[in-house]
């Protein structure tokens, strides 16, 4: 009996330890950044611990958009000029498949479970639904004009696209691949990011220099937050949104409770793609003009490191794994 209780306590202790570890770590840690270098026609794989490029992969076609499969095994790269979706085996660090898609593929996002990849086509004004296992294009969903950013809710039910030249966010039902609604946002929405709870979406509006905050359930804009000039994309970490401002060479930091800008961090020139470490410690920013991936420490609100990458990094999408 005594031994039994002892074992029980030991098991409970282990469970508590595991739980606290899981809470501290949040989601699984990421170790690498996959940065699309548009001018260089390459993909830089950056080891986050050392901030060094560990591999450069030839892509071609002026790569811009990037997404990762949920398990981190595949990276999906769009090449707008090559009109291709390129599937990269992330562990082997090589191109696994090239798929012709549309006329100007740009934003890309991966579904959490069903293996589908959503590609926003700038010129065709559609979202192409590509099966990552077979490399075939299934549905083509008509959205607004020049869709750029695309994102999937964590439960996999909805796909949202930022339709830049319609000033609108389209809602697509992932089960039927039909557009089920739209919400007008600020001018020229480009990047779109959904929070981990699937409650809100954030668009960076290049034309009106602000961020639209959408409540996904109601489809309503709940706030519009002014940021710096030419905002491009949004990352979420530590209860804050981090917004790259291309012309201001800065990152605006929005407190998600008050929906006010609480800080502005100066970064290198022409910041574009931005993504957060899932545990919220760091945010990584691709600086297009300076060929750099900078690391922002979320607690310190300061740049604490940088990796030199290829020419013209855009990293438009979720580029960490």
């Amino acid at each position: 009996m005594g031994a039994h209780i002892e074992r029980l306590w030991w098991a409970l202790g282990l469970a508590a330890l595991a739980l606290s570890g899981a809470l501290a770590a949040g989601r699984p840690a990421v170790t690498e950044a996959f940065v699309t270098n548009q001018s260089a026609d390459t993909l830089s794989i950056v080891e986050l611990a050392s901030l060094k490029v560990v591999q450069t992969i030839e892509i071609g076609g002026k790569p811009a958009g990037i997404a990762m499969s949920h398990d981190g095994k595949l990276a999906f790269v769009t090449a707008p000029e090559g009109k291709e979706l390129i599937v990269v085996d992330a562990a082997a660090r090589r191109v696994a498949r090239r798929i012709k898609v549309g006329r100007g593929p740009l934003g890309v996002a991966a579904h959490p479970t069903n293996g589908q990849v959503y590609v926003a086509d700038w010129y065709a004004h559609k979202i192409f639904v590509v099966d990552s296992k077979t490399g075939t294009i299934g549905a083509q969903v008509e959205v607004g004009k020049s869709p750029s950013g695309v994102a999937v809710t964590p439960d996999g039910r909805l796909v949202l696209s930022a339709d830049r030249d319609s000033n609108e966010v389209s809602f697509i039902d992932a089960a039927t691949n039909r557009r089920v609604g739209g919400t007008m946002v600020g001018e020229r929405p480009f990047g779109i990011t959904i929070d981990a709870e699937g409650k809100r979406a954030y668009t960076a509006n290049v034309g009106s220099n602000d961020v639209s905050v959408l409540d996904i359930a109601s489809g309503k804009v709940v706030a519009t937050v002014p940021v710096g000039r030419r905002p491009y994309a949004v990352a979420l970490a530590g209860g804050r949104a981090f917004v790259t401002n291309q012309y201001a060479s800065s990152v605006s930091v929005i407190d998600l409770a008050s929906l006010k800008v609480v800080a502005t961090v100066d970064v290198a020139e022409y910041p574009e793609g931005i993504a957060a470490d899932p545990d919220g410690a760091y945010v990584y920013v691709a600086c297009w003009f300076d060929n750099m991936l900078q690391r922002i420490d979320v607690a310190k609100m300061a740049v604490t490191g940088a990796a030199d990458v290829g020419d013209g990094p855009r990293a438009f999408g979720l580029f960490l794994r």
């Binding site: 548009q38 001018s39 002026k62 811009a64 707008p80 000029e81 100007g104 740009l106 700038w122 004009k145 020049s146 830049r164 030249d165 290049v206 297009w288 003009f289 013209g312």
Partner: peptide, 13 residues
Amino acid sequence: PVAASAHGPTRQK
């Protein structure tokens, strides 16, 4: 007709 507002895919520097 989109030339005035669209934004081609490859920026130069």
